[in-house]
Design a protein around this nucleic acid. Structure first.
Length: 597
RNA sequence: GCAUUCGUAGCUCAAUUGGAUAGAGCACCUGACUACGGAUCAGGAGGUUUGGGGUUCGAAUCCCUACGAGUGCACCA
């Protein structure tokens, strides 16, 4: 079925028939645009064993393929490169195979399950640009893994407790009363809950810094001032009260968090992200101490004189790491050990993936090493999907310096831009206002998601606001536009009584048509690679290449005014298939595509 | 200081994992049948892949080195 496989096997055959030897693996690469052909076989590696020139080998294999196969129609040899052209009949076979597959793009089930943990926000501030990259990545990877045949469980662990939450709470207690003595609420202020709480987090920081400065002015060293500032002491006291279950503190904590969750829910809804299970750190932070006990018993951990517990990971190239404080309380690692067990107990996933920024690379290296030492059955299925930070042209984002790009603001900005562009072009006069709003949202989110997902996750990236609202070239809206354009052609075709068919008949093909079939045939493989590498960027690139190739095809051949009905039929069918595949690919990125725009 | 990731056109990113003359988009020039949607297409210009060594038929990719940048090195999360 797969042309590439056919060609590879044919080459194996040729080599054994011609030279009486075999090659472990035949590697094919796409032929460069400047040369004729589709696949290229590099003959250099054979020169040593065969003691023949690369050109000679190329000629011999090429001739053999042309004479003995139906796939290869002709060939040319340039230096050590054998360029192979594929016969139209083979292309049509491929096309018909794809058309016969109802779930094209859905790979067979793997019989395995994966948990993807992402988003995991703090409840002391609203989401920003960095969170968006995380959310889009986690969501897209989940979709891609599903397409790869895995059962996927999406989870988030909400960081809803701890000293930073107490900071917002304390500031709220101190500063939230308005002139009439009423505390501010989302309703009274008209602010989204997460933004409201974020405001108090910033207020805390300001007031705290002012106290430090005052103490320093009185002659206290800065380090001491940071620890002894009254606000800091109050917040620590508040955390103690929270842990003891003090009713007043817990009530306030509940109230503020609820407001934040309402705000988050709104944002998640807008970006189309959801979870199968949400964990709360207020429940899980106590976990992990039994794991420490277990590790001690197994002799994997050791206790120091001050009774703190450690593990020595120098054999793995890591350091010694603390897993329990000397006062017996947990650290971050303790919790994660316990939580990982919990997640496994809940779902028994074959694999667990964490979408977390690359500043935690070391933490996860240690976590995985410990779990391997403990002999956890799932230890080899753990993966940290580490992604780079998002920089701004002005430099790094810093919450406290107010240089963060707020997620809600950004989404609104993209929406506004989409609306402006659409109005300028004036193509949707027949839309009612609800339809128009839906379109603006679809385009705005498409631009934003594509912009953040087209870059390799591992790399840090630059977010240039001007480029992000660009709707031309390698952008989400360009791909969405191509889809809308095809749908328009298909509507018109239908008016002419033409429908896409389930199969196409033999006919001479245009190079742009061959190119389209070739790209389409690559889709399953690209999904597999994107799954293996956890790289939504592969899918983005695929969608872009497919859209570009279609526009090229569109510019070079005529679909509806083509005189030959068989060619028209092929082109209508191919168009429908491309539109469907673009939609599927974009869906893997969590991006919707419109019928009109 | 130690560990780790990275450095590709003016800018943002690719490069099938060691293959041909390193490709796209943006920006900048030049064109496109009265057209099935111009949010498009075709073409031009733009590169010593940070510098210097090495490995081999062949290097942006692997090794060494210098320079530059990010991140991590808490009994924080």
């Amino acid at each position: 079925m797969d042309i590439q496989e056919q060609v590879k096997q044919a080459i194996q055959q040729a080599i054994s028939a011609l030279f009486d030897t075999t090659l472990d693996e035949v590697a094919l690469q796409p032929t460069k645009k400047e040369f004729e052909g589709l696949y290229t076989f590099v003959t250099f590696p054979l020169t040593k064993t065969l003691r023949k020139s690369p050109i000679e080998i190329g000629q011999a294999i090429g001739t053999y393929l042309q004479e003995n196969t139906t796939v290869v129609s002709h060939f040319n040899v340039v230096q050590g490169f054998l360029n192979l052209s594929i016969a139209d009949s083979a292309w049509l076979d491929v096309l018909n195979d794809i058309l016969a597959e109802p779930d094209f793009g859905q790979l067979p089930t793997k019989g395995q399950s994966v948990m993807v943990e992402f988003s995991s926000p703090n409840t002391n501030k609203p989401l920003h640009l960095g969170h968006l990259r995380n959310n889009f990545l986690g969501d897209a990877v989940s979709r891609i893994l599903k397409a790869n045949g895995y059962d996927v469980v999406k989870t988030s662990i909400v960081n809803d407790r701890g000293i930073h939450i107490c900071k917002s709470m304390r500031a709220y207690q101190l500063f939230s009363n308005d002139a009439s003595g009423q505390p501010e609420t989302p309703e009274s202020s008209g602010m989204k809950g997460d933004h409201l709480i974020g405001k108090y987090y910033v207020l805390f920081d300001k007031a705290y810094k002012a106290q430090i400065e005052e103490l320093v002015a009185q002659g206290m060293p800065k380090e001491e001032a940071e620890k002894k500032a009254p606000l800091m002491l109050e917040v620590q006291e508040m955390l103690r009260k929270w842990e003891q279950g003090d009713p007043e503190t817990v009530t306030l904590w509940r109230q503020l968090n609820e407001w934040v969750y309402a705000g988050f829910a709104e944002t998640y809804q807008k970006i189309g992200v959801s979870f199968d299970k949400t964990y709360y750190e207020s429940n899980t932070y106590v976990l992990g101490k039994e794991v420490v006990e277990e590790g001690l018993q197994k002799g994997i951990f050791y206790r120091k004189e001050d009774s703190s517990v450690w593990i020595n990971l120098t054999e793995e190239g890591l350091d010694q790491k603390l897993v329990l404080r000397s006062d017996g309380t947990s650290v971050y690692m303790t919790q994660d050990l316990g939580t990982t067990d919990l997640k496994y107990d809940d779902f028994h996933n074959d694999r667990q993936i964490w979408v977390v920024g690359n500043e935690q690379d070391y933490h996860f290296a240690v976590l995985f090493a410990i779990l391997r030492r403990l002999g956890r059955p799932y230890a080899n299925g753990l993966y940290h999907l580490s992604y780079g930070m998002v920089d701004l042209p002005s430099g790094k984002m810093k919450s406290r310096e107010g240089t963060v790009v707020d997620a809600d603001d950004l989404i609104q900005e993209m929406y506004d831009t989409a609306e402006q562009r659409t109005r300028d072009l004036g193509k949707i006069e027949d839309f009612n206002s609800a339809e128009a709003q839906q379109l603006y949202h679809m385009l705005g989110m498409g631009a934003l998601k594509y912009f953040l997902l087209k870059v390799d996750p591992k790399k840090r990236m630059l977010f240039n606001p001007e480029e992000s609202v660009d709707f031309q070239g390698n952008t989400g809206p360009f791909i969405q536009y191509t889809h809308a354009r095809i749908r328009s052609v298909l509507r018109k075709a239908e008016q002419n009584g033409l429908q896409p068919e389930k199969s196409v008949s033999a006919v001479a093909m245009h190079p742009t048509e061959q190119q389209l079939v070739y790209l389409l045939s690559q889709f399953p493989q690209r999904i597999a690679e994107a799954g293996d590498d956890y790289a939504p960027s592969y899918i983005g690139q695929f969608a872009y290449e497919l859209a570009k190739a279609y526009n090229q095809f569109y510019a070079e051949v005529s679909i509806l005014s083509e005189p030959d009905p068989i060619k028209t039929q092929l082109r209508v069918t191919l168009s429908a298939l491309v539109a469907g595949t673009i939609r599927k690919a974009m869906q893997l990125l969590g991006i919707d595509v419109p019928e009109k725009m």
